[in-house]
């Protein structure tokens, strides 16, 4: 082996043991039959996959896609201007970037509970609004789809800001000046120069948000209050309460295949345009 190949050895080992092998185990489980009292065993079957065609699960899968897509769109919408602001800042870039990553310093769980404290019927927002007499009933801020989207957007926003910032920071200021010099207003500069050049970062940010949102179970569980069920919750439920590991494995496998297909599509889209110059 060449010395360079040796550098890959630790990563390869970890990926093999902690990713490839578990994935194969999941794939194998998904083809087994659930035992009467939990557990799983022979015979081999495709029944778990057939169950996925039940409209109930298809609906949840579609909804999960919709929620993840909405959260991703909102993250891009909020993340792009923020990344542009930081990339164009003359000073304090490091400070702004540190602030963006600041939430990672505390556990996601703690931050989610903090949101619940703010949003619940007796929470800070409702208490203040009631106290001011602006509302007579608490607003239903928590335990619905909007709350789930809010939690997802809040949790994954940094993952869009950072890759978009990385591409924007590499766009030389003279390109923007050249565009203005050629008659483009600031808004046209963003549309015709900044956005096209930021594409690889936008795509990377979208993937980094969409994929974990699609499989999210903590946020819908806590902020959706069990009323807003996503595919992640269904999978989690199969491995815990329902004790139906083969079906959970089948759900996981399908989700995995869908995500990989999307990633391949994005990759082809990016390489079509050669990424960044």
């Amino acid at each position: 082996m060449k010395p360079r190949t040796w550098f890959l050895l630790p990563a390869r080992t970890v990926m093999l043991l902690l990713f490839a092998v578990p994935m194969l185990i999941v794939a194998a489980y998904s083809l087994l039959t659930r035992g009467a009292y939990g557990g799983q065993g022979a015979p081999w079957t495709l029944a778990n996959y057939a169950r996925l065609l039940d409209p109930l699960y298809l609906e949840i899968l579609l909804k999960s896609f919709w929620i993840a897509a909405l959260a991703t769109a909102l993250c891009l919408l909020l993340g792009f201007p923020l990344a542009l602001f930081i990339a164009r800042a003359r000073t304090r870039k490091t400070l702004w970037l540190a602030l963006v990553t600041l939430p990672f310093w505390t556990s996601f769980l703690v931050r989610t509970y903090a949101w619940m404290f703010l949003l619940r019927d007796t929470g800070l927002i409702n208490t203040i609004l009631l106290g001011l007499g602006l509302i007579s009933e608490p607003l239903p801020l928590l335990y619905n789809d909007a709350a789930v989207v809010l939690g997802l957007v809040y949790g994954y926003l940094p993952f869009t800001v950072l890759p978009i910032y990385a591409v924007l920071d590499r766009i030389g200021p003279e390109l923007l000046e050249a565009a203005e010099d050629l008659g483009a207003t600031p808004a046209q500069v963003v549309r015709r120069i900044v956005l096209p050049l930021a594409r690889p970062g936008l795509l990377a940010g979208a993937v980094l948000v969409f994929v974990p949102c699609l499989g999210a179970y903590l946020t819908p569980d806590l902020m959706g209050g069990g009323k807003s069920i996503l595919i992640g919750n269904v999978i989690q439920n199969q491995f815990t309460n329902a004790r139906d590991w083969p079906f959970g494995a089948a759900l996981s496998a399908v989700l995995m295949v869908i995500v990989m297909g999307l990633l391949l599509l994005v990759r082809r889209k990016t390489s079509e345009h050669g990424g960044l110059p």
């Binding site: 030389g172 003279e174 390109l175 000046e177 050249a178 050629l182 207003t185 120069i193 050049l197 960044l276």
Partner: peptide
Amino acid sequence: LPPYERRVNTVFQNYALFPH
């Protein structure tokens, strides 16, 4: 006046061609 309202144009030192 902002640059986009002036009837002057610039050839930049490094040309600043749009790479995309």
